[in-house]
Design a protein around this nucleic acid. Sequence first.
DNA 1: TGACTTGATCGACATGTATCGATATATGCT
DNA 2: AGCATATATCGATACATGTCGATCAAGTCA
Lengths: 139, 139
Amino acid sequence: MNRLMVEREPMAEQHRTKLAVQSAGTGPTCCPAGLDQPMSRAAATDLARLFKAIAVPARLQILALIRSSDTGELCACDFTDSLGLSQPTISHHLKVLTDSGLLVRRQHGTWAHFSIDSRRLAELAAVVSPARDSAEVLG
Amino acid sequence: MNRLMVEREPMAEQHRTKLAVQSAGTGPTCCPAGLDQPMSRAAATDLARLFKAIAVPARLQILALIRSSDTGELCACDFTDSLGLSQPTISHHLKVLTDSGLLVRRQHGTWAHFSIDSRRLAELAAVVSPARDSAEVLG
DNA sequence: TGACTTGATCGACATGTATCGATATATGCT
DNA sequence: AGCATATATCGATACATGTCGATCAAGTCA
């Protein structure tokens, strides 16, 4: 008699794209998959953690200071002076960046020197770099 | 008599690199400067806001879903189903991504379609891409 | 040894935000 | 008109984290 129960959604059903997020077999932590394929929640969480590491003003300034330095390596004390932040705060940021693999820490007596791991940074760039297909970017 | 006041720091003085953050005249919001020069706090804050936009698992999944789709454009309802998040949460993430310029919103009747602004995404990639000098990355 | 410096850790606090349910608004279908 | 659907907005809540002062551990120099 009434077909209400089976024909409830006139618009929705034929439109939905039915995307699955099940694929994306990202490895442990090596070479995060790009955006060109669906991403599992776990892979997205790992990748987000990496992006969060640089998504903080002070930490971006730290990376910029290291890269713009002559030797590509700076002492922790340099940041404390330059960024106007307390020493514990700088120490915290340096730890986050080091734990994420973006910075490499070299101990030299009392001093700690930090340099950028370009490979790790390039991994980030690869994720957000334009897809292979569309090369007309920045045209 | 006592020279304590002038010779207080034996180690520090000759080591400090004396870096200034005053430079970095980044424009309003166009083309964020890379990491190859010191970054002002204001420029770093703007850039951090952009990175924060993609530093969330759900939002990375959204970008990945859009990019892996056939048309490069998805309806908001697609995400609600795929990511297992509530509709208000998805709407929130889409708003953040759109406000940051990473997504472009196209209204079509009741539906809202979202696509990626590749230029904006390329800006992010440019910031974290390796410096011009060191090309031996990924060797 | 003792005074000083560097850097890490701890605890506390304030702020930001991801998430949800409830609701509002607009559009499409009957 | 009346109902269903698609999105956005609002308010509340829980959790993460940036920041600081205080403290601790370790290295350096006189």
